[in-house]
Design a protein around this nucleic acid. Sequence first.
DNA 1: CGTCACACCCACACACCAC
DNA 2: GGTGGTGTGTGGGTGTGAC
Length: 476
Amino acid sequence: MSYNSYDNGEQYDAFFDAGHSEHVEQTAAQKQSHYNMTRRTQMEAVSRNQIATNPQDLTTGRHRYQTNIPPPIFVTPDGRSMRFTIQHGEPRRAEFVQKIITHGGAVIEPGKDVISLGQQDAISLGQHGVFSIDFIDDCIEQGQISAIAPYINCNTEEEPNLIDPRIAATSQQSNLSDDPNSQIPELTAAQLQQLEPQQQESVHEPLFQPQPLHHHYEPAIEAEFPPPRQQQSSPLTPPPQQNQQHEIQPQQQQQNEMPVQEQELVSTASSSAQKSTTKTAKKSTNRFTEEQDEFILERIRENPRLRNSHKFYDTLATMEILNNHTQNSIRSRYRRLLQHRLYYVYKIDDFDRLVYDKHGEKIKVGIEDIGGTLKNKFTAEDDYILCKALKDAKRVVYSVFSDLYRKNPHHSINSWRDRYRKFVGDGDIEAYITYYEKKISVGETPEGLSRVVAITKPKKNSSKEVDAEEESRESV
DNA sequence: CGTCACACCCACACACCAC
DNA sequence: GGTGGTGTGTGGGTGTGAC
């Protein structure tokens, strides 16, 4: 079996089971398999233009998801998620965010009736004061909500013994249900009311209608939104009404038979023609409306890991509400302006599916609690880990990267290997280790390997890469 | 002159395939 | 099992023209 031609995570398991039987490594392998599945799912979802899952999918997925999670604790008597905010300076913030979410709660930014957790000397974030984070552990240990009064750290407006966290959360959640914009200072409730009823629905209802469920990640874009205003000829964005088998259109087939440069010319010319006939005419008055901004934000909240994806915005641009803007424009709009208004996103599971509470409502969490996007940048620490592994290895063979992957599964085997292939020269390993340790010892932040490796990288590079090396060599 | 919408660019993380 | 080649598309920009 080729190590890098996995079709699914089971092949990872097969590999690891065959070659490494130790318990610790098996556990690691399971994690890697899961991680790999997750990342593959993300990439495949993007490739299929899957922007959000439909309610039926979510119902199915929710059951599967919830079978593996602890019973909910941080829920109100009527089953809604209690909402907490944890101060960003809290050293164990990430750990407790996970605990809260895992047990049915939600972590959001400070706001009315949000239970604030943090240090004693911190500024109070909630109207009830700030409570010790131990409250969470104790509740989990007891399997139920404890009285919160003993956990008060600093009080602001009310006596802690007046507070029943479940009641506070209930009233707050009711407000949330009635006022979906309570978290969005820029978009007031009054502004929302100015929207047409249908528009409001598009903002707050699930994007897609039920589809025949024969695959968990079947795209369901066509269901609610009309066909794109123009035929998308790009193989990257097949029209939703077309079969997913990617039938080759005559034009595409013709392109496939052309030399690459000619294909590029045709592609550029055709896309330019499309753009010029569809969108540039409106440019002078084509401002984004508040409704469109909120629509974009809501789609991003539902698909937080795709927030930088070109294809994600490509698909958004085919939707009726945004059909007067291009993918580039929508993406630019988010990156330039809207990302500063993305105060929360919706909780997703490991397969990027929305997680709902008992009432079928999406759970709001902070963007920092979702994790990264689709790609992880190599850090200086990653490069150091890589160089250490290479140094310890007698030969740079596949097992070096598979070991790296098992110990550091945030990059795939291929990624570790590719990093080595493209950034590490023969003499770089010792040099970078020395450089990194020296920087760390003096309290400085080391640069990533890319800039160091250019000094000695002995690869058979293209002329362009050689030029780049020359530049780097001069600049270092 | 600043802002906006939009087009375009490119390095590289990640993947797949052939051998 | 291991390697080299290469495709895809993300992530993070910059450039340009209209207003």
